[in-house]
Computed example of a mutant assay.
Amino acid sequence: MTKQNTQYFANPAGHPPQTDLLTDRAIVTEAYTVIPRGVMRDIVTSVLPDWEDTRVWILNRPVAGGATTFAQYLMEVAPGGGSAKPEAQSTVEGFIFVVDGELSVTIEGENRVLAPGGFAYAPAGSQWQVKNDGGAAAKFHWIRKAYQALEGYTAKPVFGNEQDLEPNPMPGTDNKWRTTRMLPVDDLAYDMHINIVTFEPGASIPFAETHVMEHGLYVLEGKAVYRLNEDWVEVQEGDYMSLRAFCPQACYAGGPSNFRYLLYKDVNRQIVL
């Protein structure tokens, strides 16, 4: 398969000039949150324990009235930086998706160097580490979820690059709406899906999806108009959306390029009562 000609938006950070208006597209409701790229500035970064030469934008964390099943970070690791112990909680699984630079990832002794589009899944309790051995900053998404173990099933490490995977077309869309699945979808060992969703200009989700799965959506490329609950919201590359369970959602891709986003959702488990 020939690799796709694609790019991934990497947060420019910095600060806007004093002449800019403060009005932006940030929205926080009980059904959804939209964090536009313009507010992901240096002033809202954090540093993390056990990480060297690294800063992070925390895009989602479990909060009352919001999405509660996962945390999502946008990480920036300087050359020589990284972590020998990224995950402090043995019950938490992790997924990394690189958007800029290169990142060396080792999980249970298996090492891969991930370029943009590269991904890695670290099962809960696994020994893993990350290092930036390159000459430029590495930027990547890190999605963390408390793993819901299932008797008889064991999640294993996964490595790959989304550009090497064949997307699955949605029925009746002439391949204009397609999904690249980076974790096994038919294996109950995995309790979350991480996908790249692609819409060609003019394609749409033609109904208001309303379901139990929570979502984290980071726009990698393009722009669209998203229907969230009762609102129409414009989004573009670099924007982030967090959707709680049962938030109605649909979209139209605006062009001129494809509209693509990194998608998290929780799946494959019984509801705990």
Rank of each mutant, 00 (worst) to 15 (best):
A149Q: 13
W51G: 04
N258W: 04
N111E: 05
F259T: 03
T210L: 15
D239K: 09
V212C: 12
S257K: 14
T154Q: 15
L228C: 07
I27N: 03
W128K: 08
E230W: 00
V197N: 12
H193Q: 13
V34H: 06
R37N: 12
V267K: 09
T19P: 11
G80I: 01
F246S: 11
P12D: 15
Y8V: 13
P167Y: 02
G80H: 03
S126P: 02
T68I: 10
L103D: 01
T154A: 15
D24G: 15
A31R: 14
W142A: 12
Q18N: 13
M213Q: 15
T173H: 00
H215T: 10
Q236C: 08
S204H: 04
I96C: 07
D42I: 00
T91A: 15
A67Y: 05
H215L: 08
P206M: 03
T179V: 12
P201V: 00
P17M: 12
Q7N: 14
G82H: 06
P256F: 08
A137W: 00
D100P: 03
A155K: 06
V197H: 01
F207Y: 15
P116Y: 02
R178W: 00
V225C: 04
G125R: 10
E162A: 10
V267M: 10
R269C: 04
R244P: 03
D239H: 11
K265D: 11
M170S: 11
A136K: 13
I27R: 09
V130T: 05
N168W: 10
S90K: 15
L273Q: 08
D133C: 06
W57M: 09
G66T: 04
P62A: 14
T6A: 14
P169I: 01
L74P: 06
P116K: 05
G255N: 03
A208G: 07
G216M: 12
D239E: 07
H141E: 09
Y252K: 00
G81M: 02
E221L: 12
V92G: 07
G238N: 06
S257G: 13
H141S: 12
G254R: 00
D42H: 07
M192R: 13
Y121W: 06
F95S: 01
K176M: 02
D187H: 05
G160T: 08
A84Q: 14
N11A: 09
G94I: 05
G109V: 06
P157I: 11
E87T: 15
F259P: 01
D53L: 06
P116D: 05
A208D: 12
T180M: 07
D239S: 03
T180K: 02
F159C: 01
E87S: 13
S242Q: 12
N268H: 07
H211S: 14
G66V: 01
S204G: 02
T23W: 11
D186C: 04
R178N: 04
R269I: 03
A146K: 14
W57V: 08
R227G: 08
A124Y: 05
Q236D: 01
D191W: 04
K3R: 14
F9N: 11
C247I: 07
K223V: 04
D186S: 10
A124L: 07
